[in-house]
């Protein structure tokens, strides 16, 4: 046992490659045999990853899902921000400039619309749950933007730790739901071309959610959605503790 642990921990990234490879193989098999290709294999793989992350988190009490299990520590590196961003940028290889220009204006509008709409929705729900403090309402609203905007805003305007934790949870729910929901609703919202993918990325904004959601819908759309999504958190961190907070404190 110790022998296995030594080898696995020492080669954790390699173990991650193998484990993810097997997971994807099983997922594509299930997609093919059980759903006859109706559900995309990568959607199943992502869902399996999320389920595993839940049990990993419950078992270890850590906050990086499966990666907190010593033997699977390499998943943390493989699925971490550095590798994710590297691979996302690589998907831009072969993208045509003309496609980007076509959706440029709508893409920029969608980023601001996405941040503001998500914020309002989150803030309204906070109010419905009985929150009356402007800083608390703003922080929960910011959490509905993304799980990074929530804590950045909360810390900047002095919200309590409990509310900041809530805002992170709201952002996580959003991110996970985008991962799972995108392939299911793609047909109904016209998500089948580069332009709508850019608008989608700008509206949703959660880079992880958009990255996984589009991968499970149509990998060709990934670079377009990711391009706008990566500006979203920055815009959210810009608006959250400033304009949006001022507006909420003006009302409350």
């Amino acid at each position: 046992m110790e022998l296995i642990e030594t080898v696995f921990v020492r080669n954790n990234l390699i173990v991650a490659f193998a484990v993810v490879g097997v997971t994807i193989w099983i997922s594509y098999l299930v997609a093919d045999k059980l759903t006859h290709g109706r559900i995309h294999g990568s959607a199943i793989a992502i869902a399996l990853g999320l389920v595993a992350a839940y049990f990993g988190g419950v078992a270890t009490g850590g906050n990086t899902g499966v990666a907190d299990i010593a033997l699977l520590g390499g998943i943390g590196l493989m699925g971490g921000g550095m590798m994710r961003d590297f691979a996302i940028v690589a998907t831009a290889f072969g993208v045509h400039l003309s496609e980007l220009k076509k959706a440029g204006v709508a893409g920029v509008i969608s980023i601001f619309a996405g941040v503001i709409v998500s914020f309002i929705v989150g803030a309204v729900i906070a109010i419905l749950f009985g929150y009356t403090d402007a800083a608390e309402i703003t922080t929960i609203g910011a959490g509905a933007v993304t799980y990074i905007v929530g804590p950045v805003t909360g810390e900047a305007i002095g919200a309590s730790d409990a509310v900041i934790t809530l805002s992170v949870a709201a952002g996580l729910v959003k991110s996970i739901l985008v991962m799972i929901g995108t392939p299911l609703v793609a047909r109904y919202i016209g998500l089948n071309n580069p332009q709508s993918a850019m608008v989608f990325g700008g509206l949703m904004g959660t880079t992880s959610g958009v990255a996984a959601g589009l991968a499970a819908t149509d990998p060709k759309l990934v670079p377009y959605g990711a391009m706008t999504a990566t500006f979203y958190t920055g815009v959210g961190c810009l608006l959250g503790p400033s304009i949006l907070f001022f507006i909420v404190s003006g009302i409350y």
Partner: peptide, 24 residues
């Protein structure tokens, strides 16, 4: 990219999202 996204899904703090309760 897709394998990395699967690994990314597996390291999300899903437990915290579930613990966030109704408001979250």
């Amino acid at each position: 990219y897709i394998p990395i996204v699967v690994a990314m899904a597996a390291r999300q703090n899903v437990a915290a999202a579930v613990d966030g309760g109704m408001l979250a």
